[in-house]
Design a protein around this nucleic acid. Structure first.
Lengths: 226, 226
DNA sequence: ACCTGAACACCGTTCAAGT
DNA sequence: ACCTGAACACCGTTCAAGT
């Protein structure tokens, strides 16, 4: 055994905000939001608390930066789509997939919706609506409807991922449990949910999400053309 | 001064889950979500920790029950509206107003969307869509679009309320600050947000919310009738 | 400037002990 | 059954001290 005064090995390369954010993303992806503790970060980065606070204001700042890091890529990857309708669907799908892959991002977006990453989303949506010949004065409400819908789904996704993780079941049996609970609902008082319980197997979150986007786009077209 | 061994006066009436939930709602409304600590509850209820844990599983259970308590009333208060289109708008407006009055509810709904209260919302929305002659197989996606949109706005409202409280500014100057920050954005890279910054004064959250609901309803009508 | 890590001021939750 | 409150196992954050 080593001397008792021996300390954990310290890092040699300099710390930076970016290194910290990447470590945070890795922890969040691997173990979820509540696993991101300052202690876990000091261990992973082989450093002390003060070193982290030297580059980051507080835990919320870090969580926000981590979300920006993930979402930033999505918006950047869209640019090339020419057809505005397809571009809108691409932004929506890109966000959906990013949030499905990193559920903690969904929770973060609903918590701090004014983050730079969402600014770009808002801007991109607005520009594409403009390209769709939506009248100037109708753009803000239309963009708001789309973005708020996306944020709603994002929140749901995050909540589902949390529930799935907490249940410690695999996805299959977890869904079966949800379906069973719904199917047990009184079919007189809760006819729609009762029925949904019987169709959950063939339910596809991604398809339903896109259907919602198309519904809103159809509404925007209907309101502005007649 | 009294004896140092003197203790805080204890309550005489029995505690109950309902009394605890009401106390929680009072704290949440007055001081926001992070003010709801177990310690604050013991003080307010003049009791001990164990007494609370005897009626409530944990803090999350309590937060959920508090949200149900607020949302339950909203759905119950709608029932009477005959025209399905008006009933849908009434549900949406009821939720919006409840969340505006109790912003912590918005955060809670996005965190645990399977709560009983939301079940009733989903059911009510589905029934009214059915009454609007939306085909059976289109109801789930349509209801999902509406509910997810509502949840998205709910989350935004909660986030705005948190930011407003944290800023310790009054609503007026807080909005002016936001508008100023947006107006400062590069008008080339962020034309839509730049412009939005100049119109924030005349912006009405409630009106924009309803515009979104109408947009989605128009989309549902357009997709299903052609 | 950048980093260390003990210490501080909190949390939610438990549980032996009381009535 | 219902309640008490000290104690436990954590948090995020600070700051005097080091390099």
């Amino acid at each position: 055994m080593a001397n008792k005064a021996q300390r954990a090995p310290r890092r040699t390369e300099a710390l930076s905000r970016d290194v910290i954010v990447q470590a945070a993303v890795a922890i969040l992806d691997a173990e979820g939001e509540e696993a991101l503790t300052l202690r876990a970060l000091t261990v992973r980065l082989a450093t002390g608390y003060g070193a982290i606070y030297h580059h980051v204001a507080d835990r919320d700042d870090l969580l926000g930066a981590a979300a920006d890091h993930v979402i930033g890529r999505v918006v950047a990857d869209i640019g090339g789509v020419a057809d505005p309708r397809e571009a809108l669907r691409a932004v929506a799908m890109g966000l959906f997939d990013a949030i499905a892959a990193h559920p903690w991002v969904g929770a973060q977006l609903t918590r701090e919706p004014w983050r730079p990453a969402l600014l770009d989303v808002y801007e991109s949506v607005s520009a594409n609506l403009h390209a769709l010949d939506v009248p100037e004065r109708a753009v803000p409400d239309s963009a708001g409807a789309l973005v708020n819908y996306i944020l709603g789904v994002a929140g749901q996704n995050a909540a589902n991922a949390r529930a799935l993780a907490a249940s410690k079941l695999d996805r299959e049996t977890f869904l079966a449990n949800v379906a069973a609970r719904w199917a047990q609902l009184d079919p007189v008082r809760y006819p729609a949910m009762h029925k949904a319980g019987r169709h959950l197997r063939e339910h596809d979150d991604r398809e339903q999400f896109l259907a919602g986007i198309d519904l809103i786009l159809a509404g925007i077209a209907a309101v502005n053309h007649t």
